[in-house]
């Protein structure tokens, strides 16, 4: 089956920065806001999402010739739910404390719009290799997005990064940053910065 549109390598690169799922497409906002009060939960979440996204993309791509159009969304969600159950059980078995912190947000990966949109847009039309590289690129982009928010929130909110102290002890922790409002404010401002930077770059290019 000849693949249309960008090649596998282009898709991989596109997923990371130019078509970043979080900043560019505003997909997967729930985990981006909920688990980013520290770097470690954010990275664990990104890892779990990457696992589910890659596996679901590969399976969807293998199934693409037998999929019935009206049943495809159901098949996608059931595939995703299966892998989310695996990821959730794995976290509970080997990283119990982390799975307590992440709480309901691991099962909520099932309804992460980013994964369904990748299955729909890319994996259900492309060969396995293309779907795989697309999934890896998008996961890296998502990981970068989560890490950027978590960096700002953890450094300002508790003066640490990856639980290592970066700001002096005298730093007054901005409690609001690790609380829910801080998530909205950080993402809003980062999004503004991203748009401002992109607009300036485009103005320079033209």
């Amino acid at each position: 089956m000849p693949s249309k549109g960008p090649t596998a390598t282009e898709r991989f690169i596109n997923g990371i920065i130019p078509e970043n799922p979080l900043y560019r497409n505003l997909l997967g906002l729930c985990p981006a806001l909920a688990v980013t009060n520290g770097m470690k939960p954010a990275l664990t979440m990104a890892g779990a999402t990457a696992f589910v996204l890659i596996c679901a993309n590969v399976i969807t791509s293998l199934l693409r010739n037998v999929l019935k159009p009206h049943l495809r969304i159901l098949v996608f969600t059931l595939t995703i739910a299966t892998f989310v159950t695996i990821a959730d059980r794995f976290l509970q078995a080997f990283m119990y404390d982390m799975s307590k912190i992440l709480g309901p947000y691991v099962p909520l990966i099932i309804v992460n719009c980013m994964i369904i949109s990748r299955c729909e847009v890319c994996a259900s039309k492309q060969s396995v290799g293309t779907a795989f590289s697309d999934a890896v690129g998008v996961s890296l982009g998502f990981c970068l997005g989560l890490a950027s928010i978590a960096t700002v929130r953890e450094i300002l909110g508790s003066g640490t990064w990856m639980e290592l102290r970066v700001l002096p002890e005298a730093w007054p922790n901005w409690g609001i940053m690790v609380l829910p409002p801080g998530a909205f404010l950080t993402l809003g401002l980062l999004l503004g910065g991203w748009n401002w930077y992109n607009a300036r770059r485009e103005a320079k290019a033209s």
Binding site: I176, L187, L191, A199
Partner: peptide, 22 residues
């Protein structure tokens, strides 16, 4: 401000609403 139009300002307003709900 132009870069904040749309989702950006919505999230900032949501942050302030979240503070109120606290």
């Amino acid at each position: 401000p132009k870069p904040l139009e749309g989702a950006g300002i919505t999230l900032l307003v949501a942050g302030i609403m979240a503070m109120a709900f606290m």
